[in-house]
Design a protein around this nucleic acid. Sequence first.
DNA 1: AGTTTTGATGCAACATTGTAGCATTTGAAA
DNA 2: TTTCAAATGCTACAATGTTGCATCAAAACT
Lengths: 159, 159
Amino acid sequence: MPAPASSSPVPADFPATTASALIAAHGGRVTRTRVAVIEALQGAAHPLSHDEVGVALTDAGIAHDRVTLYRALEWLVDKDIAQRIAASERAWRFEIRRGGEHRHAHFHCDRCGQVLCLEDVPSDSKPALPAGFELDRSELVLHGACADCGRRGLKMEAR
Amino acid sequence: MPAPASSSPVPADFPATTASALIAAHGGRVTRTRVAVIEALQGAAHPLSHDEVGVALTDAGIAHDRVTLYRALEWLVDKDIAQRIAASERAWRFEIRRGGEHRHAHFHCDRCGQVLCLEDVPSDSKPALPAGFELDRSELVLHGACADCGRRGLKMEAR
DNA sequence: AGTTTTGATGCAACATTGTAGCATTTGAAA
DNA sequence: TTTCAAATGCTACAATGTTGCATCAAAACT
């Protein structure tokens, strides 16, 4: 349940902690699906694919439709509550946007496909662009092998 | 298997100019499809999607199969003749690897989806990674609006 | 609390992008 | 020329999103 606005003087850009508050602050309807999606993303140690979010919802006992999930994620990105990452492979990864404009790089393991956040590696380069271009954001993705996989002499697939 | 070094004194890492030479230097068979794909990539002003390469082949009068094209591109990436870029959207983009290890950033227009090379913006950051991680390469993709699109007040889709 | 409005959902159907298996063709080595 | 693995071209299928539309329900309004 969203807290009555009267008793919660929280500006829309305040990094609200609860899913409900986040949704309400952006003028959306607080539904079970959206709440569960946000909580799944907030609780994740790394950016989640659409499919991983789906599994999280199922685990939480929230019935959901594939399309609804896509739309919930799309809405979150649109409201800048979450962001998409095109790390590699064909599926998007989603991640909650934490306070402010702090953008960090990501690491994609070319062996297992896992993606993780490199919180201390900034992704905010603002190089000079050709005339007429406008820069919105920069996405830095590092590729290689993660610790779990190691690179045991196997040639990595250039995926 | 690699071509017999005896008859072709061209080291595999030599920046051969012709498609045929490139292919042969990597021990591949020189087929019309591969030659045409390489020439399409070499002649392109920006990284091409699988589909764009297909159009180029058709324009060049080279009949081809969708799957063959995927496999030709896969082979080029495997041989490090070309590289894949996950700029955004769901389709890969392909680009010829020019001499040496020079890696540059790319710009993705969130309005028209076009991707272009930023030859003077390097993409070679080598930040410290957690223990056990191995870095292979870094991919820097800038997002925004290109000059053609401009950002005419329209909200960009966060694609 | 009941009604209304419209945003959100669920379903079916479709689109795009990429892979796998296998019979056939063909580049180039012998 | 002959030979044979490498490439190709099907067909089928898998994975990931998207569109349209009828239905449901969150929350605003009596």
